Amino acid sequence: MQNTKKKLWVQVWGALIVAFGTSVVIVASVKNPSKADSEIHLIQMTTDMDSALTAGGVVDSVYSNAKFGGALLIKNIKAESWVPSLPETYEVLLLVRGWKRKDSTMKEGILLCKNGMLARIDTTPSIDASHGTPRSVYGFAMSFSLRIQKEC
C-alpha cells in the first residue's frame, strides 16, 4: 500500500514538472523573436550600419548572427582610421535613417533605437584579439532581442 502511494506521488510530481516545462517553452516561443524576424532585423541593421560606415573608418573585424531570440551585428573599426568626429557623423547618418537617440548615462558611447533594435557607437577604444593579435579598435554594434524591444 505504501509503495503504491509513493508511485502515485512520483507520477503526480512528474506530470506537474512536465506541464510546467511545457508552459515555459510555449511562453518563451511566443515572446521571443523568431529566427525569421531576427534575420529581417539583421538585414536592416547591416544596411543601416553600412550606410553610416560610408562616412569613414576602416572595418577591422565583423561578427553577425541571427537566431531564435535575436540578432547581433558588430563591426570593429581600426583605431588608426578613427577620428574624433566619426561617432557624431555615424549618429547623424543613423538619425536620417529613422534611428532615435536613447537617453543614457553611458559616457563611452552613443546609443540609438529603431524598431526594437539598439545601436551602440563606442567613443573609447577597446582591445580586439579575434584575429590572434591584440589591436585597438572602436566598436560599432547593433542588436535586436526581446529585452531590447522593451528598452527601445
Rank of each mutant, 00 (worst) to 15 (best):
G109D: 01
V62G: 13
S126Y: 09
W82N: 12
D128P: 03
T105C: 10
F20M: 12
I74V: 13
K78A: 07
G98L: 13
V30I: 14
T105I: 14
K107E: 13
L42D: 00
D50N: 14
C152S: 09
V24Y: 11
L93C: 10
E108K: 15
G56W: 02
R97G: 02
I26R: 02
S104A: 11
K114R: 12
A71H: 03
T47M: 10
W99P: 00
V59F: 01
I110K: 00
A15C: 09
G132S: 05
V10T: 07
Y90G: 03
V58G: 07
A55V: 10
R101S: 07
I26L: 05
S136C: 07
E88A: 10
V12S: 06
E88D: 12
V10D: 01
I77F: 04
M49Q: 00
F68C: 05
K67N: 08
D37N: 10
K35V: 08
K7W: 08
L95E: 01
E39H: 03
H131K: 10
G139L: 13
S104V: 13
V96E: 08
P125T: 06
D48A: 06
N32F: 10
N115D: 13
S136K: 10
L8V: 12
P125R: 05
S126W: 04
Y63T: 08
N3I: 13
L95Q: 04
I110Y: 02
I43Q: 10
P134I: 00
E108G: 14
N76T: 10
K114W: 00
S81D: 04
D103P: 11
A119L: 02
D103W: 11
T47V: 10
T89N: 13
K78H: 06
L95Y: 00
P84M: 04
G139C: 11
T22V: 05
K6V: 10
V12D: 03
N3S: 11
K78M: 02
L73A: 00
I74S: 11
A52P: 00
K31H: 11
L94W: 07
L86W: 00
P33E: 02
G69E: 04
L86D: 03
M45S: 01
L72H: 11
L16T: 06
S34A: 02
D122N: 13
V59Q: 03
E88K: 15
K6Y: 03
T22R: 08
G57A: 05
V96S: 07
V59T: 11
A36W: 06
G57E: 03
V58M: 09
C152R: 01
V12P: 02
L73T: 01
K31Q: 14
K114L: 05
V18I: 12
R97I: 09
S126A: 15
P125A: 06
H41N: 13
S51M: 05
D50P: 04
K107S: 13
A19Y: 04
L53P: 03
I40R: 12
L16P: 05
A71R: 01
W99G: 02
G21N: 05
T123D: 05
V18A: 12
W9V: 00
A52C: 02
N115L: 08
I43P: 05
K7H: 07
I17P: 11
H131E: 08
Q2W: 15
